[in-house]
Structures are given as structure tokens and as C-alpha cells.
């Protein structure tokens, strides 16, 4: 029963934490965008405009919930749920810290350490597309359908290099478990570099981060919702909290992808050259590892915003060309080199 309680607390904690980050991200995105564009952004609600997400939330909740007349009613309500659900569930396998000792009991800071965690993440990443497809189809609007179509094609294309880039990581660490991958990144590598994934897989990292942007439908791959071409893509017909769920799911997705980048390539909760476990007490070590992890995650969240307001959108054929003609061959070469290096060194 005790274990159940701990698991429940972990689930609730990480859920609330991710929700909070997603909420803050809406504010970071708006202020970051405005500062890059020589503006100040929303700075009225609360100190530095920090209460702006709350105001937005109240607005979305109190708006009229409109379902278009010709829309497929059931599918239309199903879409946002299908979109947000995989985004939330992916956090179940992400290790958000090492471990914490409370009352003589060692608690691993991860909801569930399943031995196929890596594949679970890939599987859920591919499920997120259904929310977009269903939303686009049910809206009965040409722009929505175009958005859904683009998103389908894009996700199929970028799933492959994503999986291949991650396969190279599993080749190096010899496990599918995210916690074991994170644990293996302690210490240094070749005496100089921190033992992080990025130093062993530089090409893999670039592939992963590019495909992560495509999976999250972020600029420069935001074709499913390209405002200048197809109004706002799959959520053109959505309003009030259904739209809120789509936007929210997007930020939770960003959060998950950033956590994955940190776990696979940036040493999860490890600091370079410093072994925190050596000089911190069991409780403070747990908290410190959690904070270090989220500091890294927040950098990548910021990177998503930063890139969004720097790079213009790709054309559709360019996206497809990049996926099939550049990323997949590169991912295969990366996998081959990794396998060769492991074969030669063992």
C-alpha cells in the first residue's frame, strides 16, 4: 500500500509540475517573442505579467464553446483529448531526478522505470498525431483537413530518423530503460568531456533535436498550423477550452521532448565534473538532482522559443525533402558508425 501511495504522489507531483511549466511556457513564449522583436510583451497582469497565463485561462474557460454545424460532433470533442493524452502520458517514464531518501526509504524520482521506456516514448510520440488528424477531419473545413494531412505526412517522415537517432543511443548504453541511460552518463569520457550523450553522439543529437522540432510542430516545421497559409491548420474551427487543450498539449509536448533531449544527450541530472552525491545529504541530493534536471530542461524549452522567433517556416516539399533525403540517410550513417565503433572497441 505504501508503494501505491508513493507512486500516486509521484504521478500527481510530476503532473502538476508539468502543467505548471506548460502554463509558464505560454508566458515565456509571449514575452520572449516580444523581446526578440523589440517589444516588451504582456507586462500588465501581475509582476512582469506573470499572471497573464491565468488571465488567458480564465478567458478560454469563459468563452462560448462553439461546435460548427457541419462538424462531426463526437470526433470534434475527441480531438483535443486525443492530442493532450499522449503528451501527458509520456512523462511516466522520464526520470526527473536521481533518488531521494525519505524516512529510510529510497524513492526513485521517476514514475515508472519500465524496461522498454525508450520505445514507450517513441510509441506515444506517434500517437499524438491522431489528435491532430481527428480534429482536422471533424472540423469539416478545408484548412483543417490540409493541416491534418500535412501533420500526418510530417509525423510519419520524422518518426523514422527520430527512432534511428535514438537507436544509436541504445546501442551505446545497451539498454532501453531511461533511468539506466541517465545513470550511465556520470563521470567523464576520454578524460576531458563529461560522459554525456552529446559528446558520444554529436550527429545523433542534431538529428534528434531537428526531428524533435518536427514532432512538436514547432517552427521551422509548423506546417500543420501555418498561419500564413492555412489560417491556423487543424484547430481553425476550435475555440474556448478545446483550443486551450490543443495549445496546452503542445506545450506539454515541448516539455516532454526537452526532458528527453536532456535525458538522452545532456546527462540528465548530472553536473559536469561534479559528483553531487559525494557531498550532499540524501534529501538535498534528491532535490538538487531534480533542480539540475529542470534547469537543463528549461534551457531547451527556451531554445524552442528562441528558434521559433529566429527561423522562418520551411516550404512543404522542403520539409519532406529534408526528412527523407537528408535526415534518414544521416541517421542510418550515424547508426552504422556507432555500431562499427562499438564493434571495434569491445
Amino acid at each position: 500500500m505504501d508503494d501505491w501511495l508513493i507512486a500516486l504522489i509521484k504521478v500527481v507531483f510530476i503532473w502538476v509540475w508539468v502543467l505548471l511549466i506548460a502554463v509558464i511556457m505560454t508566458w515565456v513564449e509571449r514575452r520572449g517573442a516580444s523581446m526578440i522583436q523589440d517589444r516588451l510583451g504582456p507586462n500588465r497582469a501581475g509582476p512582469f505579467g506573470l499572471l497573464q497565463p491565468l488571465a488567458d485561462g480564465i478567458k478560454l474557460f469563459t468563452k462560448e464553446d462553439i461546435v460548427p454545424d457541419k462538424a462531426k460532433k463526437i470526433l470534434f470533442s475527441l480531438g483535443p483529448i486525443l492530442f493532450a493524452l499522449p503528451a501527458f502520458s509520456a512523462y511516466a517514464v522520464v526520470p526527473f531526478g536521481d533518488k531521494i531518501v525519505l524516512g529510510g526509504k529510497e524513492i526513485i524520482l521517476q514514475v515508472s522505470d519500465i524496461n522498454v521506456g525508450f520505445l514507450y516514448v517513441v510509441a506515444l510520440g506517434s500517437m499524438a498525431v491522431y489528435g491532430i488528424i481527428v480534429g482536422g477531419w471533424a472540423s469539416n473545413n478545408k484548412y483543417s483537413i490540409l493541416g491534418g494531412l500535412r501533420s500526418t505526412a510530417q509525423l510519419i517522415s520524422y518518426e523514422v530518423p527520430l527512432g534511428l537517432a535514438l537507436l544509436a543511443i541504445t546501442l551505446i548504453y545497451g539498454t532501453f530503460s531511461l533511468r539506466e541511460i541517465a545513470l550511465a552518463q556520470q563521470g567523464t569520457f576520454l578524460g576531458v568531456f563529461p560522459n554525456w550523450g552529446i559528446f558520444k553522439q554529436p550527429l545523433g543529437f542534431i538529428l534528434f533535436i531537428v526531428t524533435a522540432y518536427a514532432e512538436a510542430n514547432r517552427v521551422p516545421f509548423d506546417l500543420p498550423e501555418a498561419e500564413s497559409e492555412i489560417v491556423s491548420g487543424y484547430h481553425t474551427e476550435y475555440g474556448s477550452m478545446r483550443l486551450g487543450l490543443y495549445l496546452f498539449g503542445e506545450y506539454v509536448n515541448l516539455c516532454t521532448l526537452s526532458a528527453l533531449i536532456v535525458t538522452f544527450y545532456f546527462g540528465a541530472w548530472h553536473l559536469p565534473y561534479i559528483n553531487m552525491a559525494a557531498f550532499l545529504g540524501p534529501i538535498s541530493y534528491g532535490i538538487a538532482s531534480f533542480l539540475v534536471f529542470f534547469l537543463k530542461v528549461s534551457f531547451f524549452l527556451w531554445l524552442f522559443v528562441w528558434v521559433r522567433w529566429t527561423v522562418p517556416r520551411f516550404r512543404y516539399d522542403q520539409v519532406m525533402g529534408l526528412g527523407w533525403k537528408a535526415l534518414i540517410p544521416l541517421a542510418l550513417i550515424n547508426l552504422f558508425i556507432t555500431a562499427l565503433a562499438i564493434q571495434l572497441t569491445i
Binding site: M35, I36, W306, V307
Partner: peptide, 14 residues
């Protein structure tokens, strides 16, 4: 390169 440019703008406005 582009990100360096946007970073400069960001820091100034920040």
C-alpha cells in the same frame, strides 16, 4: 548566426 542576432535583440530588450 540568426540566433546570435535574435539573442542580441533579446538581451537589449530584456
Amino acid at each position: 548566426k540568426g540566433m546570435v542576432l535574435t539573442w542580441k535583440h533579446f538581451v537589449f530588450n530584456f
